[in-house]
Simulated assay, not measured.
Amino acid sequence: MPNPFDDEAGVFLVLKNPVGQYSLWPQFANVPDGWSVALGPEARGKCIDYINDNWKHMRPLDPELPSS
């Protein structure tokens, strides 16, 4: 079974969690608890571009600190 995350023709969402991490997510799959849709549904490439443009720090944000 092919990995749905690698489907170049698939339709995806960009998810974001409360600590500022992003995830590419297939549109057909349920959004996990604690994650919200930041973009989509869109083509895979557009979602990856969005993640690259918006996720500047790989380390999770500290949820106890105020956001800037």
Results as ranks from 00 to 15, higher is better:
61 L>I: 03
40 G>K: 01
48 I>F: 04
1 M>V: 11
12 F>C: 02
35 W>M: 07
37 V>L: 04
23 S>Y: 03
54 N>S: 13
58 M>Q: 14
66 P>M: 10
6 D>L: 09
44 R>Q: 08
40 G>I: 01
34 G>T: 09
38 A>C: 07
6 D>V: 06
15 L>Q: 04
54 N>R: 13
22 Y>K: 02
11 V>A: 10
67 S>F: 08
33 D>C: 06
68 S>Q: 14
49 D>T: 13
62 D>E: 09
15 L>M: 07
42 E>S: 14
65 L>R: 14
43 A>E: 06
55 W>L: 15
47 C>T: 06
14 V>F: 02
41 P>G: 04
68 S>L: 14
28 F>R: 14
20 G>E: 04
27 Q>M: 06
44 R>N: 07
5 F>W: 09
7 D>Y: 04
14 V>M: 05
41 P>Q: 05
25 W>D: 00
23 S>I: 03
28 F>E: 13
8 E>C: 04
11 V>I: 11
56 K>N: 13
66 P>L: 11
32 P>C: 05
53 D>R: 14
51 I>G: 06
14 V>S: 00
25 W>F: 02
15 L>T: 03
45 G>S: 12
1 M>D: 10
20 G>L: 06
51 I>C: 11
68 S>D: 14
42 E>Y: 11
15 L>S: 04
61 L>Y: 06
59 R>P: 03
52 N>G: 12
68 S>F: 14
42 E>R: 14
56 K>C: 09
24 L>V: 01
36 S>C: 10
57 H>E: 15
54 N>K: 13
28 F>C: 10
4 P>E: 05
33 D>I: 12
25 W>P: 01
13 L>V: 04
11 V>D: 05
47 C>R: 01
46 K>D: 10
9 A>Q: 11
50 Y>F: 15
42 E>I: 07
62 D>A: 09
13 L>E: 02
5 F>V: 03
15 L>A: 02
1 M>G: 09
31 V>A: 00
15 L>K: 00
49 D>V: 09
35 W>Y: 13
45 G>N: 09
16 K>I: 14
48 I>L: 15
18 P>N: 09
20 G>K: 02
59 R>Q: 15
67 S>Q: 12
4 P>S: 05
64 E>H: 12
61 L>A: 11
43 A>K: 10
64 E>P: 00
15 L>P: 01
40 G>Y: 00
57 H>A: 15
29 A>K: 12
25 W>M: 01
10 G>C: 06
32 P>E: 07
4 P>N: 06
52 N>A: 12
37 V>A: 02
15 L>R: 05
22 Y>Q: 05
25 W>Y: 02
5 F>Y: 13
17 N>D: 12
10 G>N: 05
